[in-house]
Design a binder for these strands. Structure first.
Length: 305
DNA sequence: GCGTCCAGGTCTACC
DNA sequence: GGTAGACCTGGACGC
């Protein structure tokens, strides 16, 4: 198969740091995302509105400029190129203004490293639907299972770019599958009906989850809306709100509880209330501060901690 | 090789 | 409103 290739340069804000953004969550390893740690690239297979399926690979060319390499079986026109730029911008949250957060964190010397390495952003999916499916697939299971379920969803329900790389399925593609199929072939277990139900609410009942990224609702009301969906409990709703750019909640799961205990509790059990109180001073940014606190050793090179 | 445990939780029934 | 038990899968671990 002969591929055509386009190269696109994208200017990014001064406070944007590419690899910190990619490396700040496990999302970069969930299909159809993939990454190369050595080359410091992030890739994604994506179906464009025109129907063309592309693979976009992003790297930082220099400070303030990203380079996107787009591979496609068909030549791309300007509308396709603009859409790729838009998708990359959404995934990297280029439109998210974190300057109030950076101003707030200036007052906390122990978080000086955040500004220094440009931490704060983390990648998300082009659609809220994809983020929700991935979040539901991450509950009560190992990360390995989340990765396997996500990959199988792409391979079995998405559209192929190559044998190994498929797009993430649309709500319509998931809605057309049966619970039995999701259970048997995707192996999502008891979460299977939740995934089909979410997709069918979008397709058949017109639930507009994409509008949540610009919702006028306050975070508490928005969380209540998100939790109306089956399979979305307290943790999942908090995580989805983080992906929507709302950091008012902590998204406490067993990994975070264990990590907090190691960092701040000398390895002893710490209650959720104590964790809440610890991050309360950070107000509406507390979810983001907690997450950065948890992943500091993952982001900051040993000598600079 | 086999059995058990449990992981980046949620739902339902019951009190 | 609080709590116990069930729920899928698959990797890790002990034997």
């Amino acid at each position: 198969m002969r591929l055509s290739t386009r190269s696109i340069g994208v200017e990014v804000p001064e406070d944007f740091h590419f690899w910190s953004t990619v490396w700040s969550s496990g999302w970069c390893g969930l299909a159809p995302f993939s990454f190369d740690e050595e080359e410091r690239t992030l890739s994604r297979v994506q179906r464009l509105t025109s129907g063309k399926i592309v693979r976009a690979t992003v790297r930082e060319e220099r400070k303030g400029l990203l380079r996107i390499r787009v591979e496609s079986r068909e030549p791309l026109d300007e509308a396709d190129v603009e859409e790729v730029e838009s998708v990359v911008g959404t995934c990297l949250r280029l439109d998210e203004d974190l300057s109030p957060f950076f101003e707030m964190i200036e007052g906390y010397p122990e978080f000086g490293w955040v500004r220094e390495i440009g931490a704060g952003r983390s990648i998300r999916s082009p659609t809220v639907f994809e983020d929700m499916v991935k979040t539901i697939s991450s509950t009560n299971c190992s990360w390995a299972l989340t990765r396997a379920v996500t990959r199988r969803l792409c391979l079995r329900l998405g559209e192929p770019f190559s044998e190994e790389d498929h797009t993430f399925p649309t709500p319509r593609q998931v809605a057309s599958a049966t619970e039995g199929f999701i259970k048997a072939e995707i192996k999502a277990g008891y979460r299977s009906p939740y995934l089909v139900e979410l997709a069918r609410k979008i397709v058949d009942e017109g639930l507009d989850v994409e509008a949540w990224r610009n919702s006028p609702l306050d975070s508490v009301s928005l969380k209540r809306e998100v939790m109306k969906l089956r399979g979305v409990g307290d943790y999942a709703a908090d995580n989805i709100l983080k992906l929507l750019g709302r950091y008012d909640f902590l998204a406490l799961d067993s990994w975070v509880r264990r990590k907090f205990s190691q960092i701040h509790g000398k390895g002893e059990a710490v209650s959720d209330r104590e964790i809440e109180e610890f991050y309360a001073p950070f107000g509406k940014w507390k979810g983001l501060v907690l997450w950065l606190d948890m992943i500091k050793e993952h982001l900051v090179p040993k000598g600079r901690r």
